[in-house]
Every structure is written in structure tokens, then in C-alpha cells.
């Protein structure tokens, strides 16, 4: 069984963000980078499927982005992927979901993947489009936002998460694509021996020009910080003082301490 998992590298969301010089994206300097949280679930599910299928399986992890994304790809290799393919692109942040999906589909189209895993959305741009678009471009069925997954005899069964905690049970034949939601599984931590083993795994680079055949349909024209509204009080200081101040505020503004 041939499996593909698509991952994105994103900044740690607790970073202090700055707008970059052209005002159209966040500044990439001084950020800590990690694997998109949703994609960690995708990698874990792909590795579990590989383990289930056994010797006959082959798992590729794909990431479009600049040189630094290889660090994140190594984590996927240490989690159990067999090889990494980096589509080298210093300007991936300017590509729209359609361009990203087209690059992935172009890479995948003649390789006969039985299953493709993506995250349901990326944490930075969060379009929640790329996975479904890849499937449509390849003419495959896709199931989005899954919180449960199983595979047997050429069919997948999954649960889609809907609003309010309701789930929909769905199934389809492979080849297919699924987009992974938070809580799908418990992503493993790479062990030291697996991190060492991962260093020997193949990590290929592919030129963007080989795979990019389309033009984008949208662009970010401006990025900015939202206005702080509501005028809430921001308090800093020593824990004991803060506790006293808060109790005073709760007494004045709410009825909960009455």
C-alpha cells in the first residue's frame, strides 16, 4: 500500500508576530517553527496504517516550503515515515490553497497512492481547502474533518466531526483522501533511536518548477493586527497582588462573590 501524508511547517502560535516589510505576511524572522498541529494527527494515522498493513507498505511525507521545513520533516521521518520529499519553495507562504493543492496533485498523480492524509487546516493561514482540493484534482473521494479512522479490505471507515459534538459515520473505497481533525489519535513522540534512524532516511528535494503548472486565484493584499476592542483591563505583576486586585474587581463588577 502506498501512502502519502502532506505536512506544513507553521510558526508556534505563541510567538510574538510582526508584520513583514511588504505588509502582506508575517515576518518569518525569530519565530519558532513546528509541524502544523493537525498534520501531526495525519502523520500518526498514516504511520498506524503502515504498521497495520505491514511490510507491503510505503509512506512518503511531502512538504512544500523553504529549506527550514526539513527540520519538521525529520520529525515525521522519526515518527515512522519512510521518506521525505521537500518541494523547495521560498515563497510558499504567498501561494494560495489552489496552487499548493495543484503542486501536491501534480506530485501524486502518477504514483498511485492508495491513501492520502492531510490536516483539516493549517494553523497559520487556516483555509481548510488544500486536502479536499487535492482529492478533487486527482478525482478521488475525500472525507474531511475525521476524528476516527479504520481501514480493511480496500475500504476506509471514518467519523466526520460535525458541530456540537455530533459525528457522521461514513465509508468509501480506496484510493481516497482524508483530512485529519484534532483528537483523531495520540501522536507519538519520536524516540531517540527512531530519531537516529530517521537521519538515514531519504529526504529528497524537488524543484518547484517541475510541479507548479497553475496560477493562483487569490492573494493576501494586506496583513495587520486586529484592533483591540472592548477595552478590557490588562494587569501584570506579582501573583498575590493580582489575586487581590481580581477579587476586588469581582466584588465590584459581578455578583459572584456576594
Amino acid at each position: 500500500m502506498k501512502i502519502l501524508v502532506c505536512i506544513k511547517q507553521v510558526p508556534d502560535m505563541e510567538s510574538k508576530f510582526k508584520v513583514n516589510a511588504d505588509g502582506r505576511w508575517y515576518d518569518a524572522a525569530d519565530l519558532a517553527w513546528r509541524m502544523n498541529e493537525y498534520d501531526e494527527y495525519a502523520v500518526e494515522q498514516a504511520v498506524q496504517l503502515k504498521e497495520q498493513v505491514g511490510a507491503d507498505s510505503d509512506l512518503t511525507v511531502l512538504c512544500i516550503g523553504p529549506e527550514r521545513v526539513k527540520e519538521t520533516m525529520k520529525k515525521a521521518l522519526a515518527m515512522g515515515a519512510d521518506r521525505g520529499v521537500n518541494v523547495a519553495d521560498d515563497n510558499s507562504h504567498q501561494k494560495d490553497p489552489f496552487e499548493i493543492a495543484s503542486i501536491i496533485a501534480e506530485f501524486a498523480k502518477e504514483q498511485g497512492f492508495d491513501l492520502i492524509f492531510t490536516g483539516m487546516q493549517s494553523q497559520d493561514r487556516g483555509s481548510a481547502q488544500v486536502g479536499v482540493l487535492v482529492a478533487e484534482l486527482l478525482g478521488l473521494p475525500s472525507i474531511s474533518t475525521i476524528v476516527d479512522f479504520s481501514y480493511a479490505d480496500g475500504r476506509i471507515s471514518a467519523k466526520r466531526e460535525l458541530e456540537g459534538g455530533v459525528k457522521a459515520r461514513v465509508s468509501c473505497a480506496t484510493p481516497a483522501l482524508v483530512t485529519c481533525q484534532l483528537g483523531l489519535n495520540t501522536p507519538r513522540y519520536p524516540t531517540l533511536p527512531n530519531i537516529m534512524k530517521a537521519k538515514k532516511k531519504e529526504l529528497l528535494s524537488v524543484e518547484l518548477a517541475e510541479l507548479l503548472k497553475v496560477e493562483g486565484k487569490q492573494e493576501t493584499s494586506k496583513i495587520y493586527f486586529p484592533e483591540k476592542k472592548g477595552g478590557g483591563l490588562v494587569l501584570e505583576g506579582d501573583a498575590s497582588d493580582l489575586a487581590d486586585q481580581l477579587i476586588q474587581i469581582l466584588k465590584e463588577k459581578t455578583a459572584v462573590l456576594a
Binding site: F17, V19, G216, Q218, E219, S221, K222, Y224, P226
Partner: peptide, 8 residues
């Protein structure tokens, strides 16, 4: 952050 998106 927020972004304005221009469709082409």
C-alpha cells in the same frame, strides 16, 4: 492577525 484577501 487578520488579512485582506483579494480574489483574481
Amino acid at each position: 492577525l487578520r488579512r485582506e484577501v483579494k480574489a483574481n
